[in-house]
Amino acid sequence: MSDIRKILVPVDFSRNSCKVLRSAGGLAKSFGAQLSVVFVVQSFDDYSGFFVPHVPISQLEEEMVLNAEDKMQSFVKECLEPETPVQTRVLAGDVAESIVDHAADTGIDLIVIGTHGYKGMERVLFGSVAEKVVKTAPCPVLTINPYK
């Protein structure tokens, strides 16, 4: 594996992703790497046949991105040591594709992703984000089981 200078950590604001973020923070410190944290707001284009929202979809996505940006700051503060340098970003689109595209666009050397995030119906409908990222990432991917 080449030098690791940029580490990307996708999060979903769950307790599990907080554990993964803490582990990635330790890795970044060990490697002297830059830590980048992303959250992806799932695009509503995928749901257009399922429901009709009361507000325009673009406005709903905008509000979700703004709320996620606020949540990101408190989440990172809660999960990382105060002195940890970190960049954050909220994206919108297909979750796995957005993670992979962001990694390619920003020259990420390693993606650290949890094997378990939120569970339930989302898992049944969309499959594993981690699995899709592992299969399509432009760089090595370290998966972390937060239960171990």
Rank of each mutant, 00 (worst) to 15 (best):
I4K: 00
P82H: 04
I111H: 09
G49V: 11
G93Y: 11
V9E: 13
A103V: 02
F50Q: 15
V55R: 12
V95P: 10
E62F: 07
K6H: 04
D101L: 02
D109T: 03
D94N: 12
E122I: 06
P56S: 09
S2Y: 12
A103G: 01
Y118W: 13
Q59L: 11
P56W: 08
V124A: 14
P138K: 08
I111W: 07
R5S: 04
S48C: 08
G25A: 01
L125G: 14
V52G: 15
D70W: 11
V133F: 09
E69Y: 03
Y47S: 15
Y47N: 14
A104N: 04
K19S: 12
E63P: 07
Q87P: 02
L27Y: 11
G117T: 15
S14I: 01
P10S: 08
R89V: 01
Q87N: 11
G117D: 03
V38N: 03
F75Q: 05
Y47C: 07
V37G: 02
C18L: 04
A137F: 11
P138R: 03
L125A: 14
I7V: 06
V11R: 05
K6Y: 05
P140F: 00
V37N: 06
R89E: 13
I113G: 14
E131C: 13
D3K: 13
A137Q: 12
D3F: 15
A137P: 11
F50V: 15
L91Y: 05
L125H: 13
M121A: 10
M1L: 15
A28H: 02
E131A: 09
S36H: 09
I7M: 03
Q59A: 14
G114Q: 00
A28C: 07
K29V: 04
K148G: 05
G32V: 02
L27T: 11
V133K: 06
F31R: 01
S58I: 10
I113L: 07
P138W: 00
L142I: 03
A130Y: 03
R89D: 07
R22W: 04
K19V: 11
V100F: 06
S48R: 08
S2A: 10
E63N: 14
S74V: 12
S74N: 05
E83Y: 05
Y47D: 13
K71A: 01
I113W: 07
K77Q: 08
A68G: 09
L21M: 05
C18V: 05
P138D: 06
A96R: 03
G32N: 01
S58F: 08
